[in-house]
Amino acid sequence: MSNLSELHLDALAEIFSIGAGRAALSLSEIVGDEVHISVPSVQVINVEDINATTLSLNSGRFGAVSQYFSGPFNAEAVLLFTEEQALKIVSDMMGSQMSLEELAEFEHEAMCELGNIILNACLSAMADILHFTLESSLPNYRVASADEILHRLKENSNQPYVMVLHIDLAIEKRHTTGNLVFLLSSTSLTNLVIHINQFLGSIS
């Protein structure tokens, strides 16, 4: 099991809520409207314990934006929305009345950008607060079924831990929820805990 205490999770929750706030600020500048993002919960679980319910992957197809991060810890970060929600977000952000087929043309690019903003904001908040630097790949977007996503999470045995953040995103009046999933190796998780301990040590 993961060796994270309540206080570790609280620190992570605070870090990600700051990241979410920064992402909301960037998005509001792009859409010219109020954007609200919050991270109501952070969990760290063993990949074996992950199932469709943990990720609320109940049905349908999902849009997944992923970036690989490296530094003191390495992680694949994946932001998941249902495909339907992804299209609605894109249409809200573009602010135009387009049919779903037409939107789909932009879905790829716009979702890459949205994911990039949220992922970078969360990771940069973490890097700022825990005092380290991270590098990252460019974002990649794919649409996959819940089964495909779970399969991919589980097949990767050298990353036995997942950190799951639930994301609440509201653009104008529309509320959307998604998940941000970090796949971590044991070493990466240990390194993350070391950094959080250093940070907590500096303030307690």
């Binding site: 700051i18 706030g21 920064r22 909301a24 600020l25 509001s28 109020e34 954007v35 908040a125």
Partner: peptide, 8 residues
């Protein structure tokens, strides 16, 4: 204190 410093 907020990370979200939108004008509104």
């Amino acid at each position: 204190f907020s990370a979200n410093i939108q004008e509104t």
